[in-house]
Design a protein around this nucleic acid. Structure first.
Length: 288
DNA sequence: GAGACGTGGTA
DNA sequence: TTACCAAGTCT
């Protein structure tokens, strides 16, 4: 399946910052962490600002984690900002300020899992590894397995399946990874796939079978957000980001009426290292 | 391994 | 308006 996908990718790929020639490995790492569960359009502006301010891992490590969390702004899942700051510190101190190329070394960094580690090794360094995200899983499920949706993620199986379609050549393999991912993002999308524009429509198992409805196990549904602890955490974090001085519990109380839920959210933020302080002295972002 | 973890766009 | 979905990771 690689060749038509690679040809399509070379024609149709979006012009994105991390695809520019000479884009640094550090930029690739930052972009991949920002892109975890977050759309490209929301990432691009934050990424550019981030790299302007912190051109290398050591630059970020020299700033307090509070500044990383502030610069993360409203990208969501702010623990990623904390993890990125921690990863930058490790890279600066233990890797000579050079983003590791080895997948296992990358996996050892906070906030970097199976996807991000291989994405950095492949997109920043051009090495040959299978890169599997939700787009890849959906394309493979349809084209190869004849299923309308990817089931629950199964890391080892998913990696093996992608490996099975990867060309031997390094550069072709990298382009295949990027191409399958881009295909899933632009054409083979979840809701209304544009099969007329698909370079492998003529060999897609799902299309050949007449688009059968999905029957196997499904990926777990996302929990309701409205009224959740996640929402409360988000509201509190917005307050902390906006303030240079500790935020009092009375001020925190203004963002959510339920005292018990507020206390729970606050405690979890402190536990996660996203906030520090207490009811007596107020709460603020972590100063490191 | 199921569930927690933000935020915003789209239908 | 509700529900789904988005370049996942961690516990």
């Amino acid at each position: 399946m690689s060749s038509p996908v690679v040809a399509w990718f070379r024609e149709q790929a979006r012009d994105l910052p991390w695809r520019r020639p000479g884009f640094p490995a550090w930029g690739t790492l930052v972009s991949e962490i920002m892109l975890q569960q977050t759309q490209v359009a929301r990432v691009v502006p934050r990424l550019e600002a981030w790299l302007t301010r912190w051109p290398t891992p050591a630059d970020l490590a020299a700033s307090p984690p509070s500044e990383a969390v502030r610069a993360w702004d409203r990208l969501g899942y702010p623990r990623r900002a904390l993890a990125l700051h921690a990863a930058a510190t490790v890279i600066a101190e233990q890797h000579g300020n050079v983003v590791p190329r080895d997948v296992d070394a990358l996996l050892a960094l906070p906030g970097i899992g199976d996807y991000t580690a291989r994405a950095v090794a492949v997109f920043a360094y051009g090495d040959r590894h299978p890169v599997v995200d939700v787009n890849v899983r959906r394309v493979l499920a349809r084209a190869l397995l004849g299923q309308g949706e990817p089931g629950p993620a199964k890391a080892k199986q998913d990696l093996r399946l992608m490996e099975s379609v990867l060309p031997a050549d390094r550069d072709e393999a990298a382009a295949t990874n990027a191409g399958v991912m881009e295909l899933g993002a632009l054409v083979c999308v979840a809701r209304a796939p544009a099969c007329d524009a698909c370079p492998i429509a003529d060999r897609c198992a799902w299309r050949a079978a007449g688009y059968p409805a999905h029957d196997g196990p499904r990926a777990p549904k996302q929990a309701r957000f409205a009224g959740s602890d996640r929402q409360v955490r988000g509201l509190i974090m917005a307050e902390l980001r906006a303030s240079d001085v500790p935020v009092t519990v009375d001020e925190v109380a203004l963002v959510w009426p339920d005292a018990e839920q507020r206390a729970r959210a606050l405690a979890s933020l402190v536990r996660d290292g996203l906030a520090e302080g207490d009811d007596a002295s107020g709460y603020r972002l972590p100063r490191g």
